[in-house]
Design a protein around this nucleic acid. Sequence first.
DNA 1: ATCAATTTAGTACTTTAGTATGAGCTTCAA
DNA 2: TTGAAGCTCATACTAAAGTACTAAATTGAT
Lengths: 136, 136
Amino acid sequence: MKKTVLVFSLLILALLLLFQFSKYTVISGDLNIEYIMAIIAIAFLGIGIFINKKTQKQPETYNDQINLQKVEELGLSKREYEVLKEVALGLSNQEIAEKLFVSESTIKTHVSNLLLKLNAKRRTQAIQISKDLNII
Amino acid sequence: MKKTVLVFSLLILALLLLFQFSKYTVISGDLNIEYIMAIIAIAFLGIGIFINKKTQKQPETYNDQINLQKVEELGLSKREYEVLKEVALGLSNQEIAEKLFVSESTIKTHVSNLLLKLNAKRRTQAIQISKDLNII
DNA sequence: ATCAATTTAGTACTTTAGTATGAGCTTCAA
DNA sequence: TTGAAGCTCATACTAAAGTACTAAATTGAT
């Protein structure tokens, strides 16, 4: 945000300076009007490209966005989904329990339910299925 | 390539048209020079952004090639690497054993060794680490 | 307010995973 | 040919994961 403001401020400044410059040169007759036009055109073409580059986000993950709709379709509850993500991180039930401040029993229950909903036999399979469905 | 030629042709055409237009308006005194400058600036700013968008390539998959060199660095044997891939598919030791026509003991040995080499505590963690290292 | 779903947690159990160790067999390079 | 490395397998463990219940507290919508 701050960068955007800065860039636009500089842009406006550049525009104003160009106005002054063009006015001066036209009046004094030093330069042909075509040259000024060309300079402005090229300069702003460059600025346009520059701005675009800067504001362009890294596309990285636009094709593997997490499909939250699928999560709902599967009937995964908020907590189950949360646990699933921890499982995929490679944590044990005990570690997940500590991370989420609940007992290991609770995590076991969640994992068990989540395996049913994902139609997986093991947590490793659940990870594989989840990746295929783009939900993690 | 064809598109690039087309875009640049249109650009040059636009530039020439602008020159003619500006010359006409300056001579006839219809418009203030500042307005013309502003129009040119904005127009070429837009063109710059447009060109940049069009020429931007999709980075797709240059970062997820399997890094076999890393496999060697880790000291993973051929068989261990094979087992690792099956583990990542979500198979149990028994299932992997059947798939590779060996006993479950053998798979357990391989998995145990592979966890050591990957510095993982569990197979799920091994999957996560392997994905990070781009070896699966 | 009430009902359904969610979250929590427990017990008791079975299954799977993982460790440690020893050992036979094969392969391949020094 | 000897030795290191890799693959195989076994036994005997311990640890972790997963199942099958039951049940209480919480939350959210009708």
